[in-house]
Every structure is written in structure tokens, then in C-alpha cells.
């Protein structure tokens, strides 16, 4: 959904991080999927490097 569709489209949320934000959005009636996030192996620098290599 880009901004061309306007700002009033129903939200379909993916939450990556604090669980309380997912709960709070659900409590307002929007659908939320949660990622069971954990730090990538090797730390942020290696992960960032790998992501760039994939480009």
C-alpha cells in the first residue's frame, strides 16, 4: 500500500520488537502478525554486510 492509496486503508501490521506495541494495536481493532525476532548470528555488522551482499 503506497501513499497513492491514501492514508485511510485498513492497517495490516507486522510487529518486530516490543510485544506491548502489538497488543496495543490489536486492542484498537487492527490485525497484527508478530515476528519472533532475535539478533542475527554474528552481530549487527556481519548481518548488515550480508544484507548488502544480497543486493
Amino acid at each position: 500500500m503506497t501513499l497513492d492509496a491514501g492514508l485511510d486503508q485498513p492497517l495490516r501490521v507486522v510487529n518486530v520488537g516490543l510485544e506491548l506495541f502489538a497488543e496495543q494495536i490489536e486492542a484498537q481493532g487492527a490485525a497484527v502478525d508478530r515476528v519472533d525476532w532475535r539478533p542475527p548470528a554474528g552481530g549487527p555488522d556481519i548481518a548488515s554486510l550480508l544484507a548488502r551482499l544480497e543486493d
Partner: peptide
Amino acid sequence: DANLAVISVPGAY
């Protein structure tokens, strides 16, 4: 059909 990501992981990631 997801249209919004809410991200609050540590800053480095």
C-alpha cells in the same frame, strides 16, 4: 497483504 511494519528492535539492527 501486510502494509505497515512496527519496528522496535535494538538500534543496531
